[in-house]
Structure formats: structure tokens, C-alpha cells
């Protein structure tokens, strides 16, 4: 297990360095010159040379790359052209909102995925209409889900709020930055409930696509394991079909569904960036959307590095969990 752990940690480091290399190279081929982006087009030649020296751009490219990686490891992702602040400072401000949304989405995707898989495997009533509904759900763009939700649940029914993370003024600032968690830590159930209401629509919108993917994988392994010998034994001793699924089959099928969940996190990141626009969610998606029109490359490469490394780490954790849950798997 420790050899496995070391191997996977090594892979994380290698892939992160490769990603940093790609981002560094992109910065190099970008037609946008970082010095001009900082000083403007009319800067004098001597000012440009001085700034170039200050940024270390007059040094060999390999040295620059090593400096870039060293900086990134210490949390220095350069300065944003737009906000003029360090990208890491900006990200720290936006990250909690995005993390709360993404984690809620992941939770909904897993619960919904398991429910859908069970419904179609056990042929619950109305599960025959589920297949086309799932196909339709998998074909719907995240932003359409979001705006359809706003039209129905906000504009028509007045059930849910449509913008932001909270409508209360006195949200307790907490240790985690996740409003739901902080509210519970402070014992403020009104704040918690308000934050949950704000989360429901955007989190469900990003969760539907991944939920369908998880359900598909889980369903196909559930169906094939239902025909296995151990399931037949359980049936022979008189267990009901749901009991067989939950107590015996599910445990053996969780692996494939878990790794699908890990892969879907990448898709969910993209969904988060989009859905934050729809719901005016003050997270990394807003930061990216404001950075794109002004070609703020340090900001965007910082976000890419953060999300990329996060994705690799999440998938490694998923693989390790699988190995822990199922000793037959050697990652």
C-alpha cells in the first residue's frame, strides 16, 4: 500500500509539473506580452527593459520555468493584469464560493446517480420513462438547466432565490468560507437554510449530467452482478430484490461508479464556471469570465493550474479509495 501511495504521489507531481510546463509554454506563445500588458503600449524602452529584468524575462527560458514552478509551489502564481493583485490572493477570495457549489453538486450527483441506477435496475414504476428523460438530461447544456430553473422556481413559483449565495446581511464569517458549514458551526440555522436554498438550483444544474453518467455505469454493473452466483444464493435464501442489491451487490459495484465520479469532476468544473454566470455566483467562474475579455492570462493560468491539480488529486484519492474498498484492485 505504501509503495502504491508513493507511486501515485509521484504521478501527481509529474502531471502537475507537466501542466505547469504547458501553461508556461502557452504564456510564451501568447501574442500578449506580459510587460506591455503591465505598462501599457506607450512605455519607454528603458522602462520596458527594467520591467523585463524585474520579471526575470531576460533570463534563460529554463531558469524562468524553474522559477515559475518554484513560485507556484509556494503559492505565487504571478499578478493579475486586471486586478493588479497576486492571482493567489484573488483565488483565495473566490475559491470558497466555488468549492461550496462544486461539493454540493458532487453530493447531489452521487445521490441522484445511485437513485437513478436503482430505479432502472429494479424497474420501479415509471422507470421506463426514465431512459428517454436521462438521454434528454445528458443532452441539455448546463446553462439551459440553470435558466429554465430560474424561470420555473424563481419567476413562476417563487420557491427559490435566483442569484448569489445568501440574501442575509449578517452571514457569520467562518473558518471554512463555506456558508453552510460556517452557519452550522455558529449555530445559525436560519443562515444555513438560506444558503441551502441558494445552492439547490445551481448545484442541481451542474449535477444532472454527471448523475446520468454515474447512473449508467452503476446500472450496468448492478445488472451484470444481479446474475452472479452470490446474488442467486441470496435470492435462494429468500431475500427481496432491493435487499440483495443494497446488502450484497452494491458493495461490489461501487468501484466503477466511484471512478466514473472522479472523471465527472472535470466536467463539473466546467459546469461550475458556466453556471456561476447564470446565478451571479461570486466564485472562480466570475473571475474567469472577467479575465477572458481582457486576456488576463496569469489569472486564467492560475485557475487552470488550481483546477487541474485539484482534479488530479481528487482522481488519485478516488483510485486509492477503490483500492482500500476492494483488495482485488491493484492501482
Amino acid at each position: 500500500m505504501s509503495a502504491l501511495l508513493a507511486k501515485r504521489l509521484g504521478a501527481i507531481v509529474m502531471i502537475s509539473i507537466a501542466l505547469a510546463g504547458v501553461l508556461f509554454y502557452l504564456q510564451k506563445i501568447s501574442p500578449l506580452d506580459p510587460v506591455h500588458a503591465r505598462l501599457g503600449g506607450q512605455a519607454s524602452a528603458s522602462a520596458v527593459a527594467a520591467e523585463r529584468h524585474r520579471l526575470g524575462l531576460d533570463r534563460p527560458e529554463f531558469t524562468q520555468f524553474v522559477d515559475y514552478v518554484r513560485g507556484a509551489v509556494h503559492g505565487d502564481l504571478g499578478d493579475s493584469y486586471r486586478t493588479r493583485r497576486p492571482v493567489s490572493t484573488d483565488l483565495r477570495a473566490y475559491l470558497p464560493a466555488t468549492a461550496e457549489l462544486a461539493l454540493s453538486g458532487l453530493l447531489i450527483a452521487m445521490v441522484l446517480g445511485v437513485l437513478l441506477a436503482f430505479a432502472t435496475t429494479l424497474r420501479w414504476k415509471a422507470s421506463s420513462v426514465l431512459r428517454p428523460v436521462l438521454l434528454l438530461g445528458a443532452s441539455t447544456p448546463t446553462f439551459l438547466l440553470g435558466i429554465a430553473g430560474i424561470l420555473l422556481f424563481y419567476s413562476k413559483l417563487h420557491w427559490l432565490p435566483a442569484t448569489g449565495r445568501s440574501s442575509l446581511a449578517d452571514v457569520p464569517g467562518g473558518p471554512t468560507g463555506l456558508i453552510t458549514v460556517d452557519a452550522l458551526l455558529h449555530g445559525r440555522f436560519d443562515v444555513f437554510w438560506d444558503a441551502v436554498q441558494h445552492l439547490i438550483m445551481p448545484a442541481t444544474a451542474i449535477a444532472l449530467g454527471p448523475a446520468v453518467a454515474i447512473a449508467r455505469v452503476l446500472r450496468s454493473s448492478l445488472v451484470s452482478d444481479q446474475r452472479s452466483d452470490y446474488a442467486r444464493t441470496a435470492r435462494a435464501k429468500g431475500l427481496s430484490e432491493p435487499a440483495i442489491l443494497i446488502k450484497h451487490v452494491l458493495r461490489n459495484c461501487v468501484g466503477a461508479a466511484l471512478s466514473m465520479t472522479g472523471l465527472q469532476v472535470g466536467l463539473m468544473f466546467a459546469g461550475v464556471l458556466v453556471i456561476e454566470q447564470v446565478f451571479s455566483w461570486p466564485g472562480i467562474g466570475q473571475y474567469v469570465a472577467q479575465s477572458i475579455p481582457v486576456a488576463d492570462f496569469p489569472a486564467i493560468s492560475g485557475v487552470t493550474l488550481l483546477l487541474g491539480v485539484g482534479y488530479v488529486v481528487i482522481n488519485t484519492v478516488v483510485d486509492l479509495l477503490q483500492a482500500v474498498a476492494d483488495p482485488r484492485i491493484k492501482v
Binding site: A11, L26, P31, G266, L267, I300, G308, N315
Partner: peptide
């Protein structure tokens, strides 16, 4: 494998940002 290990849509955003929209 290294490419497959990264979230494709996010990486695409960085590439477009570097090249210009």
C-alpha cells in the same frame, strides 16, 4: 495519460486565453 489526467474543458480555456478568443 498525462493529458487524460487533466480536465479537458478547463485546459481548453487556458489555450484559448493564450491564443486570444
Amino acid at each position: 495519460d498525462a493529458f487524460l489526467a487533466l480536465p479537458a474543458p478547463v485546459l481548453a480555456i487556458a489555450v484559448v486565453a493564450a491564443l486570444g478568443p
